[in-house]
Structure formats: structure tokens, C-alpha cells
């Protein structure tokens, strides 16, 4: 990875959802090895900003480059595989087992199926591998998503409110995953409204208010 260029570089970025402008004039740079904590009240636009960085929401204005790709062009499709996003509600299929969910991801990206099993073990769910997601608790589902990010090893990890519904050992797990990404010279952006809780995981903070970074 080119050390000189930041992994995330947003200049004057605006974003809308429907007719509503959620973000305006965002400037944000995140370099390799950095973990940025994004703070702000409810409705400040934290989730929207994460979705923009994740290439899922196209900016309506400004220049946005992530992992070398211009987000307003087709280049954004090429880098998706290298981005991990853990959102508010777990993105799993309720009819499939915890393991089958991970195996699906493994088949799509082409990593060996054994990696799915290993990752499940890493997050402490080896014994529950055959359990259906629909019959698992919220905390367990979040752990499965952590397992997915361990398995996929993204260069850019985006976490939305990483602390919701986590017990202390799971918090430790998230810190471990974040440390792993930074060790690989990747980058992390995490959104939270609780500065104190995420402090151990971030190298820098930015505050989001009025649709812009302060």
C-alpha cells in the first residue's frame, strides 16, 4: 500500500438521502495505520458518512477517494471487497446457521471454507456454529459479523456504534480486530456517540455536527 496517500480522502463532500441533505462540505482524511473516532449526536449523519466511505451512498458533491478509487466513478465497485462495514443491525440471513452465513461470504470472496470455521472459533462461537441466526441473540449475531471481518481481513474497517449490546469480552474482541487492521497498515473509522468508550480504539477523533466535520 502506498504510504504517502491517505486511504480515505474526502474534500468538500456532500450527501443526500432522498431529498434531504444529510452531509455538506465534509473534509476528512484517514491514513494507513489510523483509527478515527467519529462523534456526534443522534441524526448528526454518522451512519450516512460511513455509508459514503463504504461506497454504498454516492456523494452528491465534492471529491471522494477511498483506497485509491474515485467514489463517483465505476472504480468504486473494484474496492468493495476490501471494505468491511458493521452496521446497526446485523446483516445476516436468519434461516441459515451461523456457520452457513460465514461460509456464504467465504464462497463469494473465494476464501477456503475452513476460514469460516476458524473465524467462528476466534469469536468464541465454535459451539454454536450450527445454530440458526434467527434463534441467536443480538450479541451473538454481532459476534458473527466480527467473525466475518476477521475472515475477510479488510483494508478499511467501518464500525457503526461498535459497543451496542456487547459484553466486556466482546468489547475486547472488537479492540483486537481494530488492532489487527491497524497492524496490517489498514485504517478504521468508527462512529459512536460515546467518546469515553471508544477512546482505547482510536488514534484521532472528529466531531460531526451540522452536517460537517468540526
Amino acid at each position: 500500500m502506498d504510504e504517502a496517500k491517505p486511504l480515505v480522502s474526502l474534500v468538500g463532500v456532500a450527501a443526500r438521502i432522498g431529498a434531504a441533505t444529510i452531509l455538506r462540505d465534509i473534509d476528512l482524511k484517514v491514513s494507513a495505520g489510523e483509527s478515527v473516532g467519529l462523534f456526534g449526536a443522534n441524526g448528526a449523519g454518522k451512519t450516512t458518512l460511513l455509508r459514503v466511505i463504504a461506497t454504498l451512498l454516492r456523494p452528491s458533491r465534492g471529491v471522494a477517494r477511498v483506497l485509491g478509487a474515485d467514489l463517483s466513478s465505476h472504480e468504486r465497485f473494484e474496492i468493495r471487497r476490501r471494505i468491511g462495514l458493521i452496521g446497526h443491525s446485523p446483516a445476516l440471513f436468519p434461516e441459515l446457521s451461523l456457520l452457513a452465513n460465514l461460509e456464504f461470504s467465504a464462497r463469494i470472496v473465494g476464501v477456503p471454507l475452513s476460514a469460516a470455521k476458524d473465524a467462528l472459533e476466534d469469536v468464541g462461537l465454535a459451539a454454536a456454529a450450527a445454530r440458526l441466526v434467527g434463534e441467536s441473540s443480538y450479541g451473538m449475531r454481532r459476534r458473527v459479523e466480527f467473525a466475518r471481518e476477521i475472515m475477510l481481513a479488510p483494508d478499511l474497517l467501518l464500525l457503526d456504534e461498535p459497543h451496542s449490546a456487547l459484553d466486556p469480552s466482546a468489547v475486547e474482541l472488537v479492540e483486537h480486530i481494530v488492532a489487527g487492521v491497524l497492524q496490517r497498515r489498514g485504517a478504521v473509522v468508527l462512529a459512536s456517540h460515546d467518546v469515553a468508550k471508544v477512546a482505547p480504539m482510536v488514534t484521532r477523533t472528529a466531531e460531526l455536527a451540522g452536517g460537517t466535520v468540526r
Binding site: R51, A54, L56, F77, R80, R81, I83, G84, L85, G87, A91, S105, I108, V109, L152
Partner: peptide
């Protein structure tokens, strides 16, 4: 979103 980010 998650499927898109798998690069499918």
C-alpha cells in the same frame, strides 16, 4: 449492503 461489500 453486506453482499455488495463482498464484491459480488
Amino acid at each position: 449492503d453486506a453482499i455488495a461489500l463482498l464484491g459480488v
